[in-house]
Each structure stands twice: as C-alpha cells, then as structure tokens.
Write a protein that binds this DNA or RNA. Structure first.
Length: 274
DNA sequence: AACGCGCCCTGTCCGC
DNA sequence: TGCGGACAGGGCGCGT
C-alpha cells in the first residue's frame, strides 16, 4: 500500500477515530513489528491519549498527549484496521490490537511483517524527521530546492527519488509515474538533469502525488482490504505495472527494467535523457 | 561520504 | 497437481 498518498489517505481516515481517543490496552504478538522490546512499547502506550494524527514521509505519526510519538512504518503490507461494536474473529494476519477508550479496536495487520512501529520522545522524533528530505507537497519545496539536491549526486534519478533523505514520501509507483510525466529517462544521472527537466520533474512529482491523494491512493493486491480505503489511482497509472502494454501517450510498448533490485517502468520513446 | 547490494517475511503467480 | 523461482507499493545495515 503505502507511499505518500496512501499514508496520507490512511492518516485522514484514522484521524476522526483516534484523535482524543485513549489506548486502554495494547497487545502485539509479533515482536519483529516493534522496535525494541514489545512490553516496553505496549507499556509506553497504555493509558495514553492520542492527541493528533499525522504523516511525515511514509510514516504515520500519532502524537501522544503529554509528549511522545507513536510512529508506524507500514512498509509493504502493513495496514491499520478499525473494528467497532462486538469483537469479531481476529482479522487474518493481525499482528497487534489496540483497545480504545471509545470501545473500538484498532488492529495492526501485516502479512509480511516488514512494518515497524515504536514510541519515541518528541525530541527523538524531531531528530528522525530532520534526517528526511523535504515534503514534496509543502509550499517551501521548490524546483530550485530539488535541483540543488539532485546536483549533489551522480546516482540515477529513479533511485534518487526513492531515497527518503533526498525527498520524502516517494516510492516505487510514484517515482516511475513522475518521471513519465516529466519525460525523463529513469536511468539519467541526477546531476546531469537540465534546468527545464528539473522544473518538469518538480511539477510532475507534485501533480501526481496530489492527484493520487484525490483518488485516495493506489490499491493493488487481491488479499486484504483496509479501513475501507481502497483507492482508485491504479486506474490512472500511466506506466507502473504496464510492461509491454501500449504507452498512453505514444502507443509504443512500456518497458520494465530493474534498478537497485526494484522494477522501473518507463516509455523509451517519451522519456529521454534530457 | 556516497553508493550498491543483501536481507527481513509471506504470499501469489508463472513456467515447467 | 506440484514445485521452484521471481516478484511484490520499503528501508536498514553492511561492505567497498
């Protein structure tokens, strides 16, 4: 699920339920989804009220009253699921349960258990956040800012877009999509991008992320369905997961290549080195 | 310092 | 039908 638009969608969905709600009891039965000892984590949560729900990069952020942040990195298959009313059977792949003062239950569900969560102090959170690149949808993120960051590396642009220290929140889907919209070959070395290309990329990143949020994100996978938030942006994808299919712009075949052990999709005709 | 790779874990899909 | 291998929206931690 989760790149910036999906995490933003999840945060918006959870906000009305969680803000002002208190965690009565926390249980996690898969230790590897928690950073540090599980009992330390659950003890840090129990009795605490969630003041604010937010997002930074692809991290969910639940601010606790009196200080501290409950953060979650959903990685590939992490989800939060809300259950109201009577407790039903345990959802498949549930790894943790959080009983709320309101009587509802929040389940953490994660098939591959690559997700991580923890509770850290506000200072530690700020320090962690400071290591991440700028939020691409904030006003302060300019083409000039992007250009400065891209000049500093010789790596290939697609891989740079995935580096959360350079720019926050972009993952494998939206990296390919933004590069297609900007007409840039994903194999181009970042420092070689021209001024106009950087400006097109800046605009493309913002446009694709905004449109994806407006569609509640991209939902793949047959198994599991989230908090009711299945997005629809998958219908608007132009290259991602479309290997050998016709490019929506020129009709030529979309290509799949591997960069940094991840798939990259692009149209060789529409995306040139500069 | 910057970069590239292996690996964490579980499920699905495809070819033989 | 069964089985092995590739692959999946992420990112840490290691070696060079």
């Amino acid at each position: 699920m989760p790149e910036l638009p999906e995490v933003e969608t999840i945060a918006r969905g959870l906000r009305p339920l969680l803000e002002g709600n208190r965690v009565e009891r926390a249980d996690v039965w898969r230790a590897n989804v928690v950073v540090g000892p599980v009992h330390v984590f659950t003890r840090a949560l129990e009795g605490r009220t969630i003041e604010r729900v937010g997002r930074r990069a692809k991290l969910l952020r639940f601010d606790l009253e009196g200080g501290g942040v409950w953060w979650t990195s959903l990685r590939m298959t992490g989800q939060y699921l809300v259950e109201s009313g009577e407790a039903g059977p345990l959802p498949p792949f549930a790894r943790g349960r959080f009983d709320l003062e309101s009587g509802e239950r929040l389940y953490y569900v994660d098939i591959r258990t690559l997700g991580k969560m923890g509770v850290i102090g506000s200072d530690a959170w700020r320090a962690r956040s400071a290591e991440l690149g700028p939020e691409p949808l904030e006003r302060s993120f300019t083409a000039r800012d992007l250009g400065r960051r891209l000049k500093a590396t010789r790596r290939r642009i697609k891989e740079v877009l995935l580096d959360q220290r350079v720019i926050a929140g972009i993952g494998n889907i939206y990296a390919s999509e933004a590069l297609f919209r900007a007409g840039i070959d994903p194999r181009t070395r970042a420092h070689r991008l021209t001024r106009p290309a950087i400006e097109r990329l800046h605009a493309a990143i913002r446009a694709v992320l905004k449109e994806a949020i407006a569609s509640s994100g991209t939902t793949f996978l047959s198994y599991a369905d989230a908090t009711g938030e299945s997005g629809s942006f998958q219908r608007r994808l132009r290259v991602y997961d479309r290997a050998e299919e016709a490019c929506r712009r020129c009709g030529g075949p979309v290509r799949r290549i591997v960069q940094g052990q991840r798939s990259t999709y692009f149209c060789p005709r529409c995306q040139r080195r500069r």
